[in-house]
Amino acid sequence: MGTQHVVTMLPGEGTGPEICEAVRLVIDASGVNIKWEYEDIGLDCLEKYGTLLPDKTIQNIAKNKVALKGPTTTPIGTGHKSANVTLRKVFDLYANVRPAKLIPVLKRPWDKIDIINFRENTEDSYAAIEHMVSDEVAQCLKVITWPGSYRIADFAFKWAKANGRKKIYCVHKANIMKMTDGLFLDAFREVAKQHPDIESGDIIVDNCCMQLVRNPAQFDCLVLPNLYGDILTDLCAGLVGGLGFAPGANVGDGCAIFEAVHGSAPKYAGMKKVNPSAVLVSGIMMLRWLKEEAAAARIEKAMFAVLDERKHVTYDVGGTAKTDEYAQAIVDKMHAKA
């Protein structure tokens, strides 16, 4: 066993706990040495703590600096703040890294998609500054700052360079929102000057959506403000097979939280029916973040093999396997290859 990593596990609610148990089974079998510390988050916390994100959970993440999170649901219109957004704000997890890469066994109409989206995660319309400014007008402030924009662009260029990527485009609507998106684009261009070895450019968000659907292979890395990033990352996930296989990482300078981006599917809770792949591929991202490349590659290879065989896959990809049976099949595949 190598270096021990201490990781906060946030199972979430609904199907989250059964998904996270399946993922833990696979990760623990990969040879990596992880001590998991479980903490509460999400709807189930409301009755116990009166909040979706208890202080105890915040303190544990602050200590460990890395967490793997299952799905949670934000109640709509109840006044409770989203646990996800609160986590991003409290730990200043400013970079939402959302790769979209074709999984070979999932038949899609494109030959190649390999995009990394870098979504600014803390500003824009998500600054939680909303007012009813009269009894018939609601207003939401879109907050874009130079330091926040500069920081996500800098993060993206450095990540791209470290991972051998060649091209970064800034996605914006600066032709209309000249102050806010204009500032975001200016900061991107300033950072781009420092990285002449990486091709850079910009594209207006609506055109980017059309281009993504028509010819996604043309894109390599995209840097986006929060709202466009929220939408386009799901669009990209849809291109490669849906949210069920979409990993996500929320990264700050002092902390990283890896999570699936789909919901908690409460109607399936306890049925061990859902596909845990999104949390698993997020776990693979986490292992790479922890410099555990061998374990990450082992899991990825075994997962693709199990998906390719289609004997032990979940209902959403045409199988009948339970969540834990799919996970066990991946473990068996890893051991068979060892």
Binding site: A62, K89, F91, D92, Y94, Y126, I129, V143, T145, R151
Partner: peptide, 24 residues
């Protein structure tokens, strides 16, 4: 008091939190 939408007073504030010169 919040900065870029994140509460900076009272309560826990991440030492890494990026703040600008504009406070709500």
């Amino acid at each position: 008091i919040s900065n870029r939408g994140t509460k900076v007073w009272p309560g826990f504030v991440s030492p890494d939190l990026l703040q600008v010169n504009w406070y709500r």
